[in-house]
Amino acid sequence: MPRGSGAKRERQYEYIKESAERRGESPRRAGEMAARTVNKERARAGESRSASRTSLRGPKSASQRGGQRSHGGAQGPTKDQLYAEARKRNIEGRSTMTKQQLARALGR
C-alpha cells in the first residue's frame, strides 16, 4: 500500500487481496490486483496527488461496477474467448466446434 493511505484503504486492500486469493489467484497477483483497485479508488476520491485520465473516467467505480466487465457473465466467456484459449492450447478441431464443445474441450 502507498504511504499516506488511510485505515479504510488498508482494510479495502486486505479484503480485495484475500478475496482474490480465495478465488485461486496467486498471492502476488492478488496483491497487485488489490493495489491497483485501491489506487484507482483513491484517485477517484481525490485522495492521491495524481491520477490518470482512465482512473477518473468510466461509468462507475470498480466497487459499484461489481465485476460488470469481467469475462464470467451469466453466459460465461464468449465463443471467441474460448476459441482463443483453445488455439493457445493447440486443441485440434477447434475451428468447427460450437461454444459448448469448446468449453468441454477446455475442461469447463
Rank of each mutant, 00 (worst) to 15 (best):
G4W: 03
G6C: 10
K8Y: 14
E10A: 04
E10Y: 12
R11L: 02
E14L: 07
Y15Q: 06
K17S: 03
E25S: 09
S26Y: 06
P27S: 01
R29T: 10
G31T: 06
E32K: 13
A34S: 07
A34W: 12
A35C: 03
R36T: 04
E41K: 05
E41H: 06
A43W: 02
R44T: 01
G46F: 08
S48E: 10
A51E: 10
A51Y: 11
R53Y: 05
R53Q: 08
T54L: 12
T54G: 00
R57G: 01
A62Y: 00
G66V: 02
G66M: 08
G67W: 04
G67Q: 04
R69Y: 03
S70R: 07
A74D: 06
A74T: 06
Q75D: 05
G76C: 11
P77Y: 10
T78N: 13
T78A: 14
D80I: 14
Y83K: 12
Y83D: 03
E85R: 10
A86E: 08
R87P: 00
R89W: 10
N90E: 15
N90W: 02
I91Q: 05
I91D: 08
G93R: 07
R94N: 09
S95Y: 13
T96L: 04
T98V: 04
Q100E: 15
Q101G: 08
L102G: 11
A103Q: 13
A103M: 09
R104D: 11
A105V: 07
G107I: 14
G107D: 11
R108D: 10
